[in-house]
Design a protein around this nucleic acid. Structure first.
Lengths: 247, 247
DNA sequence: ATGGCTTTGTGAAAATTTTATAAAATTTTA
DNA sequence: TAAAATTTTATAAAATTTTCACAAAGCCAT
């Protein structure tokens, strides 16, 4: 049954489904069951079905889901409409900015880069991923004229707040944020997707160290750990008993 | 009380605490309460206390937390030891690879880049963030000699599986994955931190479209939405009543 | 030193997310 | 064509995360 509220956990999984369904099409698959889909994505079949049912009934009993149809449907849910793409500007034409500029295929995701800006006048006119870098001073006029949907922030942390303020003032409300400045903590009524690369590295380092201590620590939840501990204790008891009998 | 199991949600928040405490030090703050910390990070005071108490008792009643001490403690928890840094290799010296190479300060996070590799022989010897690019063929010998702790994957999706297999075979178990290949779906016993930039963009696009429909949709949970709906209904009743009285 | 005030740590309640089960519909097989 | 197998949808149960509430502990002004 279609829900009127969908949790952020479900939404975070949508792009993964979308991406995987694309792979399935490449494999030549035309149908898939929730249990196989779940198995391959390391989710339970239940979860897959619950997730999809938030948006409608896309499956067919006894058959499963049509791969192509489901992918199209999820694309529609996310909002990748072939007819109207979201316009994107990139702030900061440093290494990261220009890497972002051509790396993840914006077009495939219904987005179109319409400008890249840098406050360094020396970069003006140079190329970044097929786009001419503009001087930051042009930003105001550009935004008033084209009102971009999304701003990608690749500026140094120190500039981030100022740039944000200006952009919000110019009506930009959606940010893909690669800076270490937490936009949502300072401004309301904005959509922000934070990347915070450094945070991810730290999470990895934590898990790296945790794995040294206990290989299972990161895999099992509390109840599963408890069950495992009990299983091991039971095994020990059995072994002890056998040993007693043997003697 | 120190816990022996800590949920992944808590762990994901640790880097944020760590980063924010750094900012507080820059601001010259030397103490902070859980309620202020929560307020500034958009978390509840309760959650902050629960999170920290997973690892020990770092606060003091009537005082709060010492900023510097707490930051140090969280650093220790994550595993950023000044004495021994984790060694990192980068696979793929394209735009993204070389951007990663100098952008997020690995050193600050207890990591040290010891090599960057690319399968394009033309890049061999060229500079990327102060490191000489090596030819991918050297990877095996290099790994056997230095056994790096972490591999950063910035290769195209097609190469990802092969590179992964080789690295795992060479004993690398920690991956910071920027490719669209889901390592953890194909290999066990590895720590993976996926970035999947494209997924983040899609999440942003979804929220962008959702915001158009309902500004509050992404902020409130189900029960809060229900309560808000009830509040509005009650307000309407009151207004109606007033109107009746007025007439 | 003392008393009021602040703030933590913690167990329990509430909310949310995930998993499991029962019922219904469709396909496949014989 | 009918029965068996498969698989979804809807619902209920379980697990997990978050919030609440308060006693105990320590700070700080007087």
């Amino acid at each position: 049954m279609k829900k009127d509220y969908v949790s952020s956990y479900v939404i975070k999984r949508l792009p993964r489904y979308y991406r995987f369904l694309g792979d399935l099409i490449d494999e030549g698959r035309d149908r898939i069951s929730s249990s196989e889909l779940g198995g391959r994505l390391k989710l339970t079949a239940s979860q897959v079905r619950q997730d999809l049912n938030c948006f409608g009934e896309f499956g067919q009993q006894g058959y499963g889901y049509n791969v192509e149809l489901l992918r199209e449907e999820i694309g529609r849910i996310i909002g990748i409409n072939g007819d109207k793409s979201n316009t994107v500007i990139i702030l900061g034409a440093g290494k990261l900015g220009s890497a972002i500029c051509d790396n993840p295929s914006f077009e495939k995701r219904g987005c179109k880069i319409i400008g890249i800006f840098d406050k360094d006048p020396a970069l003006k006119g140079k190329d970044a991923g097929g786009h001419k870098i503009r001087f930051a001073g042009e930003l105001e006029n550009f935004c008033r004229r084209y009102s971009p949907d999304i701003a990608v922030l690749c500026v140094p942390k120190e500039s981030a707040k100022l740039v944000c303020e200006e952009l919000i003032g110019l009506g930009v409300t959606n940010f893909w944020n690669f800076t270490h400045f937490d936009i949502n903590l300072h401004f309301d009524d904005v959509n922000v997707e934070n990347v915070h690369l450094g945070d991810g590295l730290l999470t990895l380092v934590y898990n790296l160290n945790a794995a040294k201590d206990d290989a299972q620590a990161q895999i099992l939840g509390p109840s599963a750990r408890k069950a495992e501990a009990e299983r091991q204790a039971a095994e020990l008891r059995v072994r002890r008993l056998k040993k007693q009998k043997g003697e």
